[in-house]
């Protein structure tokens, strides 16, 4: 099936006084109809930026400096603002990481939902209000009919997040870009929201880019996962492979840092050091200063995505031509 979303070689730059920063560099992936692509990775790696580029809401001075984004085969990265705005409501629904940027503090949540529903689906006010309550119920807001007239500040953090989810879903878009949609939710509501999102993917063929740090949510929801590091995709593949048998040294470190549920450990595994700043990304592999496997070539040549047995990893250990190859244990996860 032809992909619904195609991202090719996406490059996003931020011109600053101290020079131009490259926030995304050569990011490529597809999402098929009804597919959920999970996106994980280091904080600051560019996940939200990727989502913002897709929905055409990069914050200036950030701009797309290369590559292209296609929805249903049509380019959407170079559309005029008005045209993109229409696509954003109707075809792409966005759930932002920060609920406060989506919600207008001056309007009740009901009014915001009703307006979104009316402008996208052209329903009358009474029907739109009925749907607004319906979507609030769907995302698990208790006493939705009573609380539909509340203002955002009268809701808890997790309840606001659910309103944002309802806002993104109520126009019934084909693609949902969801940035940390369940982070503020308790595990039970989270299960309910995940079931709702999965149901949309399964029954309505809605596609989703799901950014989250919660590997449990990824494991349950995503079909494939992309792992980002310093503005690039480090690894991409089917969810089971990436979570259970990660190939890229960064992904391996990441998975090892997940706190266990079944016991308490003295010290959690961590990847020492921190991600390079955008103004100081090292030559070669961006992960090389922290990589336990680093070798000569890594400091000079930037790795491309290579077949790594089940996934594709941007790591020279998987290039047959390298002087060092992935140890046996790593190749088989």
């Amino acid at each position: 099936m032809a992909p619904l979303l195609e991202v090719r070689d996406l490059r996003v730059e931020f011109p600053t006084r101290r020079g131009t920063l490259t926030a995304l560099d050569g990011v490529s992936f597809d999402i098929a109809p009804g597919e959920v692509l999970g996106m994980v990775g280091e904080s600051g790696a560019g996940k939200s930026m990727t989502g913002a580029a897709i929905i055409g809401l990069l914050e200036p001075p950030g701009r797309i400096a290369g590559g292209e984004i296609r929805l249903n085969g049509k380019r959407i990265d170079n559309l005029p603002y008005e045209q993109m705005r229409r696509i954003r409501g109707r075809e792409i629904g966005a759930i932002f990481q920060d609920p406060l940027t989506t919600l207008n503090p001056l309007y009740t949540v009901g009014r915001q939902l009703v307006e979104t529903i009316q402008s996208n689906l052209g329903l009358d006010a009474a029907e739109a209000r009925r749907r607004a309550v319906h979507w609030l119920e769907q995302v698990g807001i208790p006493a939705a009919a009573q609380r539909v007239d509340s203002y955002p500040h009268e809701f808890s953090g997790g309840m606001r997040q659910r309103v944002v989810i309802a806002l993104a879903l109520c126009a019934e878009p084909k693609l949902i870009v969801a940035d940390e949609p369940t982070t503020a939710l308790d595990v039970s509501i989270q299960a309910q929201v995940i079931t709702l999102l999965k149901g949309l993917a399964r029954d309505k063929g809605t596609s989703m880019m799901l950014v989250t740090h919660d590997m449990g949510v990824i494991a349950e929801t995503a079909d494939r996962v992309a792992v980002m590091y310093a503005g690039r995709i480090a690894e991409i593949g089917p969810v089971r492979e990436v979570v259970k048998h990660p190939k890229h040294p960064y992904t391996r470190g990441l998975m090892a840092s997940i706190p266990p549920l079944d016991r308490r450990v003295e010290k959690l595994a961590q990847i020492d050091g921190s991600m390079p700043r955008l103004s100081a990304i090292p030559p070669g592999c961006a992960f090389n200063p922290r990589c336990p496997e680093v070798f000569g070539r890594c400091r000079v040549e930037r790795p491309v995505l290579l077949e790594a047995g089940g996934t594709r990893a941007a790591c020279w250990l998987y290039d047959p031509a390298s002087e060092k190859r992935a140890p046996e244990a790593m190749r088989h996860g």
């Binding site: 698990g140 807001i141 006493a143 509501i189 299960a191 309910q192 449990g216 494991a219 349950e220």
Partner: peptide
């Protein structure tokens, strides 16, 4: 106990994840 059963299953063992049943009650009432 119900909360503990709703924890996501990272190990992909296929463990059923059971949301706490019933309606979330309203703190107003």
């Amino acid at each position: 106990r119900a909360l503990m059963e709703a924890i996501p299953d990272l190990d992909m063992t296929g463990r059923q994840r059971i949301p706490v049943g019933g309606e979330v009650p309203s703190p107003i009432d």
